[in-house]
Design a protein around this nucleic acid. Sequence first.
RNA 1: GGCCCGGUAGUUCAAUGGAUAGAAUAGGAGUUUCCUAAACUCUAGAUACAAGUUCGAUUCUUGUCCGGGCUACCA
Length: 592
Amino acid sequence: MSVVNTIKQITAEAIKKVFSIEITAADIAVNITKPEFEGDYTVVLFSLVKQLRKAPDVAGNELGNFLLKNHPGLFSSFNVIKGFLNLVIADTYWIEFLQKNYDNKSFGLGEQIGKKVMVEYSSPNANKPIHLGHLRNNFLGWSIAEILKANGNEIVKTCIVNDRGIHICKSMIAWKLFANNATPETTGIKGDHFVGDYYVKYNDEYKKQVEELIAKGITREEAEKEAPVLRGAQQMLIDWEAGKPEVIELWKTMNNWVYKGFDETYKRIGSDFDRIYYESDTYLLGKGMVEYGLDKGVFFMKEDGSVWIDLTAEGLDEKIVQRRDGTSVYITQDIGLVLNKYEEYKCDQSIYVVGDEQNYHFKVLKLIAQKLQLPSADGIYHLSYGMIELPTGKMKSREGTVVDADDIIDEMLHIARQKTEELGKVKDFTETELKELYNTIGLGALKFFLLRVDPKKRMIFNPEESIDFHGFTGPFVQYTYARIKSILRKTQVTGYKLQGAGVLLNLEKQVQTQLEQFPAIIDEAANEHDPSKVAIYVFNLAKTYNAFYTEHSVANAETEEKRILRVQLSRLTAETIKTAMHLLGIQVPERM
RNA sequence: GGCCCGGUAGUUCAAUGGAUAGAAUAGGAGUUUCCUAAACUCUAGAUACAAGUUCGAUUCUUGUCCGGGCUACCA
């Protein structure tokens, strides 16, 4: 158990014994003591004052004396300021902790808790190349899956590819009209970009045709419906749904181009999936649900034959689940998929990593699933994240104001390379090693940049200012790791039991205290579905370690005992950095 | 109009109702005979506004102002 939780528990017990007040451990407020006060952890007593009927400082002293007397192995002293009881953890406790963990490769990782969690993330549109917003999604999804895994859950990673619909047909018709049978191979353009270009071409052509029609005296409204390319695309969708061979053939060919491009990008960024769903396979899934819902009286049919659900009692609106022509809408497909996924994997929880513009959609989805009493309904969780905006506003594919994923990754690798060459510290590396290093650093900077912020929050990205490699960044943490490894290469100790290293110096203790918090941080990040907790933690750990080792030499420590202590401290710090960074999908280099 | 988010240093981000609101960058001043200066140390700088709840509010409540999103028989 973590120190904080231990303190909460024994404090609750102590209060029971000393003051005869019933209180649970969860009700005790324990903070890390502010640096300007003496102590490691602080119990806040103000909230108990009323029940205690004593001045807070008097109660604090009584409590402190009791704790010190009954837990001499844990506490070495205490002091009370107003209602704050500052507890000093005994050095022997820290040394024991270090002895137990310095060689533990799975430090921080939780035990299996027998829960199965599905994480759906990435979910690309087979029409648009991946941009910065998608990267946030991919990194978040991958990271939260790893964090939940580290916290003892079994994970199934999935992705649903939006591979059908009118928008796909738009690219298809544009390709037929303008491509002259060009392919990604003949043009040398990456498949997803190639197809994305035809989507743009469609829109250009569409606009042009609308203007032409208007020039002929047709109203804008009419023109927007009648433009021949749009008509063509609509016809293509009908043909696709009817299974017309030549349309299906073209659709498959173009999608495969896209997938090949996506694969390349996914490989670069390290996204992977246990199961990929394609909307072309799932878009009819909700049909059965409509009938089921009507039977159960959850849905109702309007006079025109369309089917709805009434959510006004929940403070929402009426929501359509089937059009009057009998075709299903987006949410109906999703409901079908909820059941489908459950039957396939029987997960306890299902996390959807999807942008916050769909908050309403997922609220409705969960409500409908609950009303239909689907077995997995309560486990639906929308991991909602904010959009990435440019200083000029939202990114829009059609207007070309997007930060393309491949471009930004290339740029990051370029900066990593430039910087590395400038510093010239790894001149003996082979080409392969260098390439790997640029990847580690460049992608590390990018991933850290996107994950260090609370997912819920919108973030602004300015392409004019490149992503930093200094300060609160991935490379900063990576650099600390490389430095530690370098130290450890120079001063090894193995299997050496520490007898007692005397008094812990302030900076040694600070590193120690932070290391001890790692398991609790993973727990917190998992419960709150928030990787930024891990990013902030690992940065602070690295920062504290940096301050420690600039001040105190490891290899040339004052005594042999101190050297061993610091080597062990360094080993555990390195290992913790590595694990934490892994949870963010970031690798760490042995040298940089 | 209705519903939902958000507003913290110049900028990008932190802060289970707790002590003097933390970092990072940008700005100013320093540190390499000492384990990698992608580092370290010091310095200056912020809670949109107004009420309320209480021992105590960035945090909770209400109102105002400012951003953003949703409110499709699109996905």
